[in-house]
Simulated assay, not measured.
Amino acid sequence: MLPLLVDPGVVSGSAAFDGVAAAQLGSAALGSAPVITAVMPPGVDSTSVMAQTLVLQRTFQTLMMLFEFTGERAFRSAAMALSAGTFSATEAINAVSAAIAP
Rank of each mutant, 00 (worst) to 15 (best):
A51V: 03
N94C: 11
A29G: 05
S14M: 06
A92T: 13
M50E: 15
M80Y: 04
L30R: 14
V44P: 08
R76A: 08
M64L: 15
V35M: 07
T47S: 15
G26V: 01
L54Y: 05
A99L: 05
P42R: 07
M80D: 10
T47P: 04
A98G: 07
P102V: 12
S12A: 13
S83D: 08
Q24N: 14
R58Y: 08
E72F: 10
A78W: 01
D45Q: 06
L4F: 05
Q61A: 12
A92G: 05
M50D: 14
I100R: 06
A23W: 05
M50P: 03
P8E: 12
R73Q: 07
G85F: 04
R58F: 11
S12I: 02
R58Q: 13
A28E: 07
V49A: 09
R58N: 08
T86H: 08
M80E: 13
G19M: 00
L54C: 04
V39L: 13
S83H: 07
A51W: 00
E91T: 12
M80I: 03
T70N: 15
R73K: 14
A84S: 12
P41T: 01
L2Y: 08
F17E: 09
V44R: 09
M64F: 13
D18Y: 05
M50W: 09
T90P: 01
D18T: 04
V6I: 15
R58M: 08
G19V: 00
L5A: 14
P34R: 00
L30H: 09
A98W: 06
L2W: 11
A95E: 15
F87G: 00
I100E: 15
A81S: 15
Q61G: 07
E68H: 05
L2V: 09
P3N: 06
L30C: 03
P102T: 06
L82A: 15
F87Y: 14
T37V: 07
A15H: 00
V35D: 04
S32D: 13
A79T: 11
S77M: 02
S83C: 09
L63D: 02
T47H: 13
